[in-house]
Simulated scan of single mutants.
Amino acid sequence: MSEITPELVRHLGVLARIQLEDEEVTRLTGELDAIVENIAKVSRVASDDVPATSHPIPMQNVFRPDEVGDMLTTDQALQNAPDSDGDRFRVTAILGEEQ
């Protein structure tokens, strides 16, 4: 017996404040039912000897020590800028107000 019914989909739509057409309710009923079935299959296969995982590949911390290195000079930073004003980048006003 299917856990997902059209009435449940309509109710979820109301909770989410989404107006669903009848065709959408029919389509979503099938899609959500398939999702629930697949989750049930995984739950049946999962056992206590299989550790839960959030990623298929073991991950490790890849941070490096935060050390001060060589920095760009102001001239180096501005050398490819389309426009600059002394030691600053010059950009077009984004709010439409020229300053």
Rank of each mutant, 00 (worst) to 15 (best):
S2F: 04
I4W: 01
T5P: 04
P6M: 11
P6Y: 12
L8Y: 02
H11Y: 09
L12N: 02
G13T: 01
G13D: 04
G13L: 04
G13W: 01
V14F: 07
L15D: 07
R17D: 13
I18T: 13
I18D: 07
E21N: 09
E21Y: 02
D22Y: 07
D22C: 06
V25K: 04
T26Q: 13
T26Y: 03
T26W: 01
R27K: 10
R27D: 09
L28F: 10
G30N: 12
L32H: 01
L32N: 00
A34H: 11
A34Y: 08
A40L: 05
S43H: 06
S43V: 07
R44P: 01
A46M: 14
A46L: 13
D48Q: 12
D49H: 07
H55C: 09
P56H: 12
P56N: 09
P58C: 09
P58H: 08
Q60H: 11
N61W: 05
R64T: 06
R64K: 14
E67L: 15
E67G: 01
G69Q: 11
M71N: 05
T73I: 04
T73D: 05
T74L: 12
T74C: 09
D75S: 11
Q76W: 02
A77L: 14
A77P: 00
A77R: 10
A77N: 03
L78Q: 03
L78K: 02
L78C: 04
L78A: 03
Q79F: 03
N80K: 12
N80C: 05
N80R: 11
A81F: 05
S84H: 14
G86Q: 07
D87R: 02
D87M: 01
F89L: 15
R90F: 05
V91F: 15
V91T: 12
V91L: 14
T92V: 10
T92N: 06
I94M: 02
L95Y: 09
G96S: 08
G96E: 06
E97R: 11
E98K: 12
E98L: 08
Q99D: 06
